[in-house]
Computed example of a mutant assay.
Amino acid sequence: MDLAPFKHVLMLPGVRSLALLMFFARMPPAATGVILTLHVAVTLDKGYGAAGLVGAAATIGMGLGTPLMGRLIDQRGLRALLTVGVTASAAFWLTAPLMGYWTLLCTSFGVGLLGAPMMLIGRQVITALVPESRRRIALSVDSISVELSYIGGPALGVFVATKFSTNAALLFIGLSILVAGVLLYWMNPPMVHEDEIVDGPQPKIVEWMRGRIVGVLVVCVGATVCLAGMEVSAIASLEHIGKQSWLGVVFFAMCVASIAGGLVYGGVKRAPSVLVLLALMAALEIPVGLGDGNVLLLCLLLVPMNLMCAPLMAASGEHISRLAPPTARGLALGLQGSAFTIGGAIGAPLAGVAVDHGGAPAGFAIVGVAGLLVAGVAWLLARQSKPVASRVTMSS
């Protein structure tokens, strides 16, 4: 593993400052799930079932809205998206403490649909700041940044919610998104690399949404089927032995393993394909259930499959950014975000049903097998013809 390429990418103009800004910009979205759950279940005293409905409404909204926001970037630019998205996000989070349950339920769908998709923005910005030859390394950096955000964001959100109140945490999220959005608006980073010159009208989606890129999107679905199922099964395993307090340690081990995998993936000269990464992740999830009843063994068994997490996210982003035309990259990366959302919506209940009938080991095994099946579907799609070349010329 050679870490020198990471240094070279971070030394490119604008990369370090944007990577740092996107790290902080993604921390509030990473905390939204746990804060909304605590607010609805505890502050509003509606229970965890009602909290789950609010989270589901927001997730459905994001699944539908991310491609729309990506399309808006393609057609109107980043500032147009930020005007709509940051306004919607800040308005929701800053007024959420005043809302009753039913108002919160309806508006959570709206903020998912129209809110600022910081994950999408970060991926597209990083692809625009680096040449295609360095995108694998740059997207590895981005995936590592996401993992760090998911370590720090929920922890900070829970601290504010428990130290002060969930209302204070909601306001903190709103102010953080507003500040990050204003900074992004001021910096206005490019959305397409300077070497990519668009020639002619914007291509229609049917011209590039073909076998290989569809296969990559299917891989994204399979990845989050495995990851969402893993989380549900891990929670069930700890609850079964009365060790729920160790959940933070287990999740920390997962994130550290993913970060390590991202460093290795970005530093190797020959990287495995997205199909290989998904197949490895799914296969390595099946035996994790052997750690049921032992926190240390569970953490150790979770490490190998999570080593594939950041590399898989980076590899899928790299393929999509290369296969889609630059003028449709926002839409393509938005569809990637929707694929991640769909996978999570499938993986969590699939693991839940398996856990109810066979315990945590069944949860890990079932979603692992499901991931392997999805990898098979993606392999069949990848064998189809390449998408039509985009109307792009490379400057000298």
Rank of each mutant, 00 (worst) to 15 (best):
M1P: 12
D2G: 14
P5L: 11
P5F: 09
K7C: 00
F24V: 14
P29N: 06
T32P: 04
G33D: 12
V34S: 05
V34K: 04
L36Q: 08
T37L: 13
G49N: 12
G49C: 09
G52N: 10
V54M: 08
G55V: 10
A56D: 01
A56T: 09
A58N: 14
A58Q: 13
G61H: 08
G65L: 07
Q75L: 11
R79V: 01
L81Q: 10
V84H: 07
G85K: 03
G85H: 10
T87W: 02
A88C: 13
S89I: 14
L94N: 06
L94K: 06
A96P: 01
L98W: 10
G100N: 11
W102N: 08
G115A: 07
A116Y: 00
M118C: 03
V125G: 07
V125R: 08
V125F: 08
T127P: 07
V130C: 08
P131A: 12
E132K: 14
S140W: 03
S145D: 00
E147T: 05
E147H: 12
Y150W: 13
K163A: 15
F164H: 15
A169K: 01
L170G: 13
L171R: 01
G174K: 11
G174M: 06
P189K: 04
E196R: 15
I197L: 14
V198R: 07
Q202L: 03
G211W: 02
G211E: 03
V214Y: 02
G222M: 05
A228K: 04
G229E: 00
A236P: 11
L238F: 03
L238I: 01
L247R: 13
G248F: 08
S258T: 05
G262C: 10
L263N: 05
P272A: 13
S273H: 08
V274M: 07
L280N: 04
P287M: 05
V288P: 02
L298F: 02
L300Q: 02
M305W: 02
A310P: 03
M313S: 11
A315T: 01
H319R: 14
I320H: 01
I320P: 02
A324C: 01
L333P: 08
F340C: 06
F340E: 04
I342T: 13
G344L: 02
I346N: 09
G347H: 01
L350H: 02
V353E: 11
V353D: 00
G358V: 12
G359H: 07
V369R: 11
V369K: 06
G371S: 05
L372F: 03
P387A: 06
V392R: 14
